[in-house]
Design a protein around this nucleic acid. Structure first.
Lengths: 206, 206, 206, 206
DNA sequence: TTTTAACCGAGACGGTACGTCACGTCTTGTG
DNA sequence: CACAAGACGTGACGTACCGTCTCGGTTAAAA
C-alpha cells in the first residue's frame, strides 16, 4: 500500500509544520502493529487489551495513544497492514483450475492466524473507518486486476473460457464464500480451496 | 422458535423441582431480547451494554442474568430469535428467476435493520456459542430444504435446470455474497437481489 | 460529628428516593478513611494513590469513587473524621497551667501520626471544600467552649486570671503556633506543649 | 537574593570546567520562576504542571529541567525568591504599637497574592528541601534581628516594655497566627494586622 | 573564521496515577 | 421465589503529567 493511513492522528503536516521536535521512532509503529495482530489472533479482539499490546511491543501505552485515537483505530490499521504487502505474481500452472487453486492457497496461507474473531474485528472497524474501507477496496482491486490480467487472460488464451467473463462478480463470490467459511468457524484449508474452485468458481466461469 | 436455547440457565426445572415461589414473567423475556436487538443495531455489539438493555426493556440487570449467563449468550439468543420464525412458502412465480428473486427479496425484507454491525455481533457470538451455530445451521437447512423442495423442483419440472444441481453450494454462495455486501456497508436492496440472482445464482445453475 | 459531609456524592436523598437497592456497607466507609489517613501519614498526600488506599482497605477503586468524587474529597473527609470524636472532659488538675498542659498533651497525643504533609493536605483540601472548613470551625468551637466553660471558669474561680480574658484569641494563637511547629517539621511533643503553655498561653492570659 | 540555591543542578562549575558553549540565558530563569509563582497562586501546587509553567514562561520543558531537578525544587526556589529581598528598615513611628503595625502591614503587603494554596505548596516543599527550610530560617532570623535591634530596643528605650522580653517567641506567635489566618482562607489585611498587634503581640509583651 | 560545545524549542518516550465505565455477582426490600 | 434497585470486585479504557531523551537549530567563546 502506498498511501498513508487516515487513522493516524497527525499524518503529513504537509507544509505548515517546521518539522520540529524529536521524530517518532517508526520502528515502534511496526512493533505495535505486529503485537496487535498476534494478540488478536491469540485471544480475539475483545480480550486483547491495549496494555497487553504495549507490553508485548515493549512500548508504553502513551506511545500507542499518540499514534492512534483508540483501540478500534489501532486494530483497523493492524488489519490494513496485514493485507498491504502484495505478493509476487502467481506462476502459470498450465490450467485455469490450477491457477485459481494456487491463488486461493497462497492467499489462504497468508491469512494463517486469521479467524472469525479477527475478521469480525475488521468488519466492525470498517464501519467507523472509511480509509480502511478504501484500503480494502484497493486490495480487492489488486487481486481483481491480477486475476484479470493473468489468470483470465491465460485461460482465454488457452480457450478455457469465453471472452465475456465477469471478473468482479467472480471475486466477490470468492471473498463472500471464504468469509462465510471463516465466520462459521471453519478453516481456510486446502479442501476448502478445492471446494471453492471446483464447485463455485469454475461453474461460474463456464 | 422451534428449539429451546442451550444458553438459558434454568429453563424447564424438569419434574423434581417443587415449583414454588413467584413465577417468571415471560413477557419480560421478549422485551429484553427486543431491546437487545435494537441496541445492537443502533450502536453495535461492543457499545451495547447490558445495563442499557435492562434500562430500555424496563427491567433490572438481575432479571437478565437470571435468564442468560452473560452478554454473549443474551446476544446469541437475540440473534437466534431473529431467524426462528419461518415464513410462509413462497408463491410460484412461473420461472426460476422469479422464484429466486422473490425468495431473496422476502429474506432481505425480513432483515431490514440488520446491518454489518449486527452481523458482526452475530458472527462474534457464534464463536462462543455452539448452540447458536446449530441454530443457524438449522436455519440454513430450512432454507435449503425449501429451495430444494420448491424452487428447484419447480425449475426442474419446467426444464430450466438439470437434475444434478448442488443446492448446498448455491445457498452458501448466496449467503456469503450477501454477508460480504452487508460487511461492506452496502444495503440488501432490490438491485442487489437482482445482481445476486442474475449474475451469481443463475450462472451457477446453468 | 452530627452533620453529614458535603463532600459525599449523594447524601440524604431526603424525601424523593424510595430508599431502594442494596444499601451501602458503612463499614467500608471507615476502612477506606482509616487506610487513607494511614497512607497519608506514611507517604504523604501526593504519594498516596487511590489504588493503594483501596488495596489497604480491602476495597475496590469503584467503591471509593462511588462515595467521593476524587482524591481531594476523600482526603478532605478523612481529615474531617480525624477531628470528629470529641474526647472526654479534661480533669481538674488544680491549676490553670496544669489544665492547659493536660489539654495540650491530650490533643497532641490524638494527633500522633499527623505531620506537616498531612496538615498540608488538609489545608489544601479546605480550599475547595466549604463543608470541611465548617467542620473545622465547629471543631474549634468545641474546644473553645470547653476551654471557656471548664479551664477558664476554673481559673477564674481560683482567682488565677481576670474576668475579661479573650478565649478565641487564645485558641487561635495555640492552633497557629502548633501549626507552625508542624509545618517546620518539628513534633508536637511534651517539650513543645510546655513551651506553648508557659511561654505563650500563660503570658497571654496574665 | 542572598544565598545561592542548593537546588540548582550545576551552579558554579568551580574551576575545572572549560566553560565553553552557549551560556545560559539568565532572563529565562526569572520568567520561569514568575510563571511558577503565578500558577501556584492560581491553581495550587498540585494542579500546577511543569508543562504549563513552561508554556506560560515561553520556554521548553528541557530548559526547566536543565536548571532544577524536579517540580519540587522549582517550586522551592520560587518560594525562596519571594522572601529573599529584604526591604528597608522600618521607620520609627514613635510607639511600639505603631512600629509593630507598620512591620506587619509591610510584610503582609509583600505577600499580596500569597494565599493558603501557595503556603501549602511552600509547606509541602519544605518537607523535602532542607535548603528551603534553611532559607526560611534565615528569613525568620532577619526579621527576628530586625525586631530585636530596632523595634524592641526602641520600645525599651521608650520604657514601653521590660528588658527580658523574648523575641523568638513573639515571632513564632506572629507567624503561626498569620499562617492559620491564611490557611483558613482569610486575607492578611489591615484589620487582621491590628488584631494581631493589639490582641496578641502587645498582650504577650506586657 | 572556523570549530566546538552548550543552549534552546519541540515533542517523543516509559512510567504511573487518575477518574470512568462495563461486566457479572451480591444483597437489600417488596410483591 | 421473582423482581427492581443498586452496591460491590474486577479490570480495561483513555487522559494527564512527570522526568528523560533525542532531534534540528542557534549562539557565544575558543582555536
Amino acid at each position: 500500500m502506498v498511501s498513508r493511513s487516515g487513522a493516524e492522528l497527525d499524518t503529513e503536516p504537509e507544509t505548515d509544520s517546521p518539522r520540529t521536535g524529536r521524530p517518532r521512532d517508526e520502528g515502534r509503529e511496526q512493533a505495535i502493529l505486529d503485537a496487535a495482530v498476534d494478540l488478536i489472533a491469540e485471544v480475539g479482539y475483545e480480550a486483547m487489551s491495549v496494555e497487553s499490546v504495549a507490553a508485548r511491543a515493549g512500548v508504553s501505552k502513551a506511545t500507542i495513544y499518540r499514534r492512534w485515537s483508540g483501540k478500534t483505530e489501532l486494530v483497523a490499521e493492524a488489519m490494513r497492514r496485514m493485507h498491504d504487502d502484495p505478493d509476487a505474481d502467481p506462476d502459470d500452472t498450465g490450467s485455469l483450475r490450477g491457477d485459481l487453486l494456487a491463488l486461493a492457497q497462497t492467499t489462504f496461507a497468508k491469512m494463517s492466524g486469521v479467524d472469525g474473531g479477527l475478521m469480525c474485528g475488521l468488519a466492525f472497524a470498517v464501519r467507523s473507518d472509511a480509509e480502511l474501507g478504501q484500503a480494502l477496496d484497493r486490495h480487492k482491486q489488486v487481486y481483481r486486476d491480477r486475476v484479470t490480467d493473468l489468470l483470465i487472460s491465460r485461460a482465454k488464451a488457452r480457450g478455457e473460457i469465453s471472452a465475456d467473463t465477469e471478473v468482479p462478480t467472480l471475486m466477490d463470490v470468492a471473498a463472500g464464500v471464504s468469509l462465510l467459511q471463516l465466520m462459521s468457524g471453519k478453516p481456510l484449508d486446502d479442501p476448502f480451496a478445492e471446494y471453492l474452485v471446483d464447485r463455485v468458481l469454475i461453474p461460474l466461469l463456464s
